[in-house]
């Protein structure tokens, strides 16, 4: 583990913690962006260029923007009087711990299940493309279908108000 890894891990964790602990919703969204950027840099540190850039493009360019838009269009940026922390934080902590335990278990189990590679695999964008339309073409198409369905659903939800006959 290099010092760069620890630095990036610290940035990512700090971003994630700030997203949970800050009081202002827009600040939380920006802190999440920092965590996303940290994750992207971790991918780059592992020589996974495509994954890293895709992370920036999708998460910072789209997801973060979507989050701030949702915040501004729904509740406004004002602070609620009752405080922003949920009463049931203990339950949330329990669920988060359970998810973390499952993920940790899966990662640790995969170490013994898959033989350790000594050589660093070099995966180019070309290889990813070939794999996507070759071996993984069915999952890719299913995801595409799902996204199309979601888009059509979103359009129908947005159209509903207009289509209702005026009484």
């Amino acid at each position: 583990m290099s010092p760069i890894f620890y630095l990036l891990a610290a940035i990512t964790l700090a971003g994630g913690l700030a997203a949970v602990l800050l009081k202002h919703l827009v600040h939380c969204a920006l802190a999440v962006t920092v965590a996303f950027a940290g994750l992207a840099l971790l991918f780059l540190e592992l020589d996974a260029q495509f994954a890293g850039f895709a992370q920036i493009l999708v998460y910072i360019g789209a997801v973060a923007i979507l989050i701030v838009f949702a915040i501004l269009l729904t509740r406004g940026a004002d602070l609620p009087k009752a405080g922003v922390f949920s009463k049931t934080w203990f339950l949330g902590l329990l669920i988060a711990a359970a998810v973390f335990a499952v993920l940790g278990w899966a990662v640790l189990a995969s170490v013994s299940a898959i033989p350790q590679q000594t050589a660093i695999p070099s995966v180019t964008v070309h290889d990813i493309g070939v794999a996507l339309v070759g071996r993984y073409v069915l999952p890719l198409e299913i995801v595409a279908l799902l996204l199309t369905a979601a888009t059509i659903g979103a359009v129908i939800v947005a159209m509903h108000e207009k289509a209702r006959p005026r009484g």
Binding site: L30, Q49, F53, A54, I60, G61, A64, V68
Partner: peptide, 20 residues
């Protein structure tokens, strides 16, 4: 870079957030 074009667009996407 092997994925230079993707890098360019990733950086372009990041400017949107600063405008916001």
């Amino acid at each position: 870079m092997d994925a230079g074009l993707l890098f360019f667009f990733a950086m372009g996407a990041a400017t949107e957030l600063s405008v916001f």
